[in-house]
Design a protein around this nucleic acid. Sequence first.
DNA 1: CGGCGGGTTGACCCGAATCAAAGTGCGTGG
DNA 2: CCACGCACTTTGATTCGGGTCAACCCGCCG
Lengths: 237, 237
Amino acid sequence: MSPHLPRIFRPATPVDCAACSARHLDLFAGVDRTQRAELLASFQISAFEPKEIIYNMGQMGEFIYILRFGLIKLVRYSASGVERIVGLARTGDSIGMASLVSVPYRRTAIAISRSEVCRVPAALVREYNRGNPEFSGRLLENYQTSIDLADTFLTDLSTGSAHARVARLLLFLVEKSDHNESPLLTREEMGALLGLTTETASRVVAEFRRKGWIGFPAEHADRIRCDVEALGKIASE
Amino acid sequence: MSPHLPRIFRPATPVDCAACSARHLDLFAGVDRTQRAELLASFQISAFEPKEIIYNMGQMGEFIYILRFGLIKLVRYSASGVERIVGLARTGDSIGMASLVSVPYRRTAIAISRSEVCRVPAALVREYNRGNPEFSGRLLENYQTSIDLADTFLTDLSTGSAHARVARLLLFLVEKSDHNESPLLTREEMGALLGLTTETASRVVAEFRRKGWIGFPAEHADRIRCDVEALGKIASE
DNA sequence: CGGCGGGTTGACCCGAATCAAAGTGCGTGG
DNA sequence: CCACGCACTTTGATTCGGGTCAACCCGCCG
């Protein structure tokens, strides 16, 4: 919480790795045990609280980050300083790939919910790729996924009425979660994601709640439960 | 023009390659002369008139396409069948990269202006990459550029007033052209690009023209001349 | 000639932005 | 412990930009 303290990363251990929920999803999912153990020596782990910055756009990056768990937003700022969310990363996603091609990060990465990341030196990835050409397929797949995501943002989350956009966003968030639940975004974040104002996002969410299409489970208040059926209707305009 | 005729591709020759304006821009720009000559044997060239389709989303692709010249739109269709333009390709850009990771094309590619493409078998690119690990950097750079473009579409072309969006689009198109000119889009395409209706795009363009900020050179009617100064003011809201 | 695709323009209406105020939950310090 | 401030949400009143529907123009081609 205290600002401007140098962030502490601790070395990743095989135990971390074995317990990691991104283990079978991430960039290195295909790598065999022994090679993975070698790579692991250079991995570093750290946790981020909501609103904390993982990296800043414009910054020259030397690392990619694999999300062990949590939710991270990738944002850009317009000339006028308005934040626009251009991507979301969830468990297993790799972010900061711009460092692989030796350009400054193009986006700023900020934690939305409490998140843990595994920091991997870009040089290590480049080197590993050099020795294992089949690995570059994994890298390309990863990029392909990012592009698909960006397209989805353009087609689904930036077009249609405010109601449709919010519904589609909720469905998108629920999609990769269990029990039709999703981590909760602030209304401001929803607005930044959907190209709407905070007030409009709030109005729509409140309305959905009144209609019973979404609700907030008592047990953990940072999640939102969705009536996928009903939202689906709204989502298609 | 006649529909459903199998499209004709002709083999690329060293002469084509030497004359290609994408020569120093494209994916293979770094490849040395002799290797390039080898690869060239598998390259095929074809021209597309406006509205002609290069490939369709959903289709399993076996090729990537390098744009020798012209302008191509990359589109997605919403559930309701509305077209949304999620990308643009210009001279030197490579499209259809999804075929490298062996997934169906995610977008449909359609020529806007008369365009010529160089078709490259995905298998060849994969194989070349296998033998030349340093090449995968080029591939990643290419993907990185696509992502940056998608982000630009989200931040610049999908937010702000209709006036600002149109101005930004024109500046974007002019940016990589000479003489402050750009190829001409239909109002419908502008709408699909900017998340606006055809009528709104038309109104704004007509207004800009009345104000003298844009004009259509008599010599070639398919281009548009822009007052970068004036548009810049509008672009920043 | 008539039809057709693209562009322009007008009248009207609606949805979302804007400006404003009040409610809610939470942490901090008196 | 309570009071206060702060961040976030909700709600209301009003405005306005862009969507919608419709008419008309123009160049082109069959």
